[in-house]
């Protein structure tokens, strides 16, 4: 799949992300090999693959945690490889983490307000002297943070310490915090991990909802096939650091290479047999 073709969006949407020939070596291990991906504004794409396929490594390279060995990542036409994670975030890429990473001892409100810091609009001295600028901007920022909390149904929880929230609410808070940074592109790393079926359904609705409301482009990693097949419009499958398949959920489900990557060699033939039986 290395002969990936970059194409303009058929309906003329802006290109948000273009990853070309991305490779990451950890010593002798080729964690990601020649990975390419293209996202247009408003896309909701999935990145799947068995454990250790290199999905999170791709996320870490996009967000600047790792520097790619070779390859380029362009965000809205700008090269972002080599930038610091905070700079990439300020350009408009936000993420959540596989294992939730909130600021555990801070209040729910402060978790969101911290993400607002780059947009705070006042500096250190304004804060120390508590001048007019501080009063106005701090009020504005607090209100926006509360608005986010209310969108996510967390407004009554603003004073609660983040680590005391139930698991589902922590996940929602993490997404709220990522969105407070006002991103164009949102990367979700296994958002449904550890959620029960009801919470998973709610999460899927939430992802749809935020895409519309905040005009987002979303790339998500997920192991729960229900989520991936249910909401993603386009899916990229990785195995051993390489892309083995791309396509719509239906195409991916029918792809023998994907089935074998998940279930082992020979599984594709077996599943084909079952499918025929079902249809007969």
């Amino acid at each position: 799949m290395s002969d990936f073709q970059f194409t303009p969006s058929p309906d003329g949407r802006e290109e948000i992300l273009r990853i070309e020939g991305l490779t990451k070596l950890f010593g002798g291990l080729r964690a990601v090999n020649n990975f390419s991906l293209q996202l247009h504004r408003g896309d909701l794409n999935g990145l799947i693959g068995p454990n250790g396929a290199g999905k999170t490594t791709v996320f870490n390279m996009i967000t600047g945690v790792y520097t790619p060995t070779t390859g380029s990542i362009q965000f809205r036409g700008q090269e972002i490889t080599g930038l610091e994670p905070f700079q990439i975030n300020q350009m408009g890429i936000a993420r959540t983490f596989q294992n939730i990473r909130l600021f555990p001892n801070l209040t729910v409100l402060d978790n969101v307000r911290i993400a607002y810091h780059p947009h705070a609009g006042y500096n250190l001295l304004d804060g120390i002297f508590r001048n007019e600028r501080f009063q106005v901007k701090e009020k504005e920022l607090t209100e926006r943070a509360q608005e986010f909390l209310s969108v996510f149904g967390l407004e009554d929880r603003q004073g609660e310490i983040a680590k005391n929230l139930p698991y589902g609410e922590q996940r929602r808070l993490e997404i709220a915090r990522a969105l407070a940074a006002e991103p164009k592109l949102l990367l979700l790393d296994e958002p449904a991990a550890g959620m029960n079926p009801a919470e998973t359904v709610a999460l899927m609705d939430l992802i749809h909802f935020i895409r519309e409301r905040f005009n987002l482009t979303i790339l998500l990693i997920e192991h729960q096939m229900r989520v991936v097949m249910g909401i993603c419009e386009y899916i990229t499958v990785m195995d051993f650091g390489e892309v083995i398949a791309r396509g719509t959920p239906a195409e991916i489900q029918a792809n023998p290479r994907v089935v074998e990557a998940y279930l082992g060699p020979g599984a594709a033939a077996l599943s084909e047999k079952f499918r025929r039986k079902k249809t007969v």
Binding site: F86, N89, A94
Partner: peptide
Amino acid sequence: EDEIAAKAMGID
């Protein structure tokens, strides 16, 4: 609280 999360939230 969390250096990695802070970086990912645009904190230098």
